[in-house]
């Protein structure tokens, strides 16, 4: 995604709603910006949910975001 939140390239299935992809990207871009404003510049963010891990890396012109489903424990 570029800094304006436009999705440039994606490898997600086309069935995955574009608006959600944009929402995820926008939140990651905003998180980088807010961290920087709080004097906490970050170059990588990992958000762990119970069923999903989102990893975002800041690049010169935007961010690259990885989504990885988490395996559920069967215990």
């Amino acid at each position: 995604m570029d800094r304006e939140g436009t999705v440039l390239v994606r490898t997600l299935p086309s069935s995955y709603p574009m608006e959600l992809v944009q929402e995820i990207g926008a939140q990651m871009i905003a998180a980088f910006r807010e961290a920087s404003e709080a004097q906490l510049p970050l170059s990588e963010i990992v958000v762990n949910y119970s069923s999903l891990r989102i990893t975002a890396r800041e690049l010169r012109g935007g961010v690259i975001v990885f989504l990885a489903a988490k395996a559920h424990s069967t215990e």
Binding site: L40, L42, S50, L52, I54
Partner: peptide
């Protein structure tokens, strides 16, 4: 919004 379940942890790495 994305139904990912509860937020467990946030990690950030930076130059400082």
């Amino acid at each position: 919004r994305i139904h990912a379940g509860p937020l467990e942890q946030f990690e950030g790495t930076g130059p400082q």
